[in-house]
């Protein structure tokens, strides 16, 4: 099992730019062989968009999924709830009196969700940087990243002495 893990760690992709930068630094300073930093692995990237204008959210979703297609990222479920979230405020129409007459103000927030699967750390950074830079005005983005990690060394075997 350990052997498999070790071989796997070397088989794991290294970060796209780290090897370049470290190797150039190494040539400048010393000629020691630089150990490339292993890349992170993300099984799932969940993006939540919220905005006032559903048309803008739709266009942005189309943009992000198209970019994911070009970058070779596996797409998951992309969906949006059918109704917007209404945040209502009900106030008296008059200042103090006439309690039966009210006005309602409301803020509608539309949501949209996108899922992407199986990204390496450098792919995820590139993709997120690209789509976050192109985020239109009045749209908020929430990114949930599920990172995969190996079991820490001290948890693989039961403790010998306690």
């Amino acid at each position: 099992m350990l052997q498999v893990l070790k071989t796997l760690r070397w088989a794991q992709p290294v970060r796209a730019l780290s090897s370049v930068t470290t190797s150039s630094a190494a040539t400048n300073v010393t000629t020691t062989a630089s150990v490339p930093e292993p890349d992170k692995l993300f099984s799932k990237l969940e993006i939540e968009l919220r905005g006032v204008d559903p048309a803008v959210l739709k266009s942005y979703t189309w943009f992000a999924t198209t970019a994911a297609d070009h970058l070779g990222i596996e797409k998951g479920k992309c969906w949006s709830p059918r109704k917007a979230d209404h945040e209502r405020m009900t106030l008296l129409k008059s200042v103090h009196i006439y309690k039966k007459h009210r006005v309602q103000y409301e803020v509608r927030t539309h949501f949209r969700y996108m899922n992407f699967h199986k990204l390496t750390g450098s792919t995820l950074d590139t993709f997120l940087e690209y789509i976050e830079r192109n985020l239109p005005e009045g749209v908020a983005l929430q990114v949930s990243k599920t990172e995969l990690q190996q079991m820490p060394e001290h948890l693989r075997q039961p403790p010998e002495q306690v």
Binding site: V4, L5, L8, A11, Q12, P13, V14, R15, A16, L17, D39, L41, S43, L71, G72, E74, K118, L119, T120, S122, T123, D125, T126, F127, S144, K145, T146, E147, L148, Q149, Q150, M151, P152
Partner: peptide, 25 residues
């Protein structure tokens, strides 16, 4: 700048054997 997903970790069951810990941020 992108790197492909490593081979041998295609399914959930496969990557769970090597990477059992999930960290959500």
């Amino acid at each position: 700048f992108c790197t492909p997903w490593p081979k041998g970790l295609e399914t959930n069951a496969k990557w769970r054997t090597h990477f059992p810990l999930e960290v959500i941020t």
